[in-house]
């Protein structure tokens, strides 16, 4: 899958700068709730929570798409599995967040294991399309799931509890739990991509032939990454359901999957900081534009087209252009 290397080559020296940027973003996020309260704009907390939920999802996608060159067009399915894990378990009387997350992770991982094993037989455009097909399957499954509202989705009775505590009932509580998980996801993936495993994964992205010629079979590594990525995205789904107190198949439509790719490309593929930033900016942009006009999609679409035409490499490409992320040689 060499077709991606053009945007993927990540200059080494930019790494430290990216990590600093990520830490700065975390610090900035941490002060959002007090700031929002002080400004008398509590809805900012809700929007920031949404931004972070999608940032976790985008981070998970970057593991396979950015580091593994597996362009999945069905990743929103795992947002759905996570969300429905909350809906189904809470209806069965299990409202504990930890248990719901375990269920979401298991369901997502299992679906990814089966569909990933089949999808990874294909390459390039075919891989993109088969992951899309599996995403659609999951989507239609929940659309026809009339016990849970089918097409319309279903409202949750309440947010999940954490070990019996109503930690998520307030927006601030949910915000900090989400931030904590975002940092955990970032840190985990940061280590993962630099580990032996991550090295094999990125090596396969660069040249599968080279990796085979030194004795690796790419498939087990790619499939493992695919499963890990799905599991993390499932966690994001759990948070999404809690944030909206509502679950719907719309979370897993192909539009969402496309949007997740858009977040990554906007931020810069193959860089965790880029993926996270891309998601934060995308959601903020959507929410911001939606406040201006009901036709905000027109403006948002134009921005996407212009970024694609003018700035290969997304935001980090742009920053590099202006020398804000220096890459020494």
């Amino acid at each position: 899958m060499t077709y991606m290397t053009q945007t993927l080559t990540e200059p080494r020296a930019g790494l430290a700068a990216r990590l600093k940027l990520a830490l700065a973003i975390f610090a900035l996020l941490a002060v959002v709730p007090p700031l929002a309260h002080a400004m008398g704009e509590p809805f900012m907390i809700i929007i920031a929570t949404r931004m972070m939920v999608f940032a976790i999802a985008a981070l998970s996608l970057d593991l396979i798409l950015g580091h593994g060159a597996m362009v999945s067009f069905g990743h929103a399915a795992y947002l759905g599995f996570g969300s429905y894990a909350v809906a189904i378990l809470s209806r069965a009387g299990i409202s504990d967040l930890v248990l719901q997350m375990v269920a979401a992770v298991l369901a997502s991982a299992l679906f990814a294991l089966v569909t990933g094993a089949i999808s990874l037989r294909t390459r390039g455009v075919y891989f993109i399309m088969i992951t899309l097909a599996f995403g659609q399957m999951a989507y239609f499954f929940f659309v026809s799931f009339s016990a849970l509202g089918g097409d319309d989705g279903v409202a949750l009775a309440a947010r999940s509890t954490v070990l019996g505590l109503p930690l998520l009932q307030g927006e601030t509580g949910l915000f900090y739990v989400t931030l904590g998980l975002l940092i955990a996801a970032f840190a985990g993936l940061y280590l993962l991509t630099r580990s032996r495993f991550g090295r094999v994964l990125t090596g396969t992205r660069e040249s599968a032939l080279r990796m085979q010629a030194i004795g690796f079979r790419p498939l087990p590594y790619q499939l493992t990454a695919y499963v890990i990525s799905a599991a993390i995205c499932g966690v994001a789904g759990v948070l999404l359901a809690n944030q909206a107190v509502y679950v719907s198949p719309a979370y897993m439509s192909w539009h969402r999957s496309g949007e997740m790719i858009v977040m990554l490309v906007l931020g810069g593929v193959g860089s965790l900081t880029g993926a996270m930033t891309g998601a934060l900016v995308t959601v903020a942009l959507e929410e911001g534009l939606a406040r201006f006009s009901e036709h905000w999609r027109l403006g948002f679409g134009l921005i996407l087209v212009l970024v694609a035409l003018l700035s290969p490499g997304g935001l980090s490409g742009l920053l590099r252009k202006f020398n804000l992320l220096r890459d020494d040689k």
């Binding site: 945007t7 790719i261 858009v262 490309v265 999609r297 027109l298 948002f300 134009l302 087209v305 694609a308």
Partner: peptide
């Protein structure tokens, strides 16, 4: 302008076009 670019840039641009044309 996108023939020589990665699939991902093409996804970005054409996804944007969907939004633009649908909204128009």
């Amino acid at each position: 302008r996108l023939y020589d670019r990665s699939h991902l840039d093409q996804v970005l641009a054409t996804f944007g076009l969907i939004l633009v044309l649908s909204e128009l």
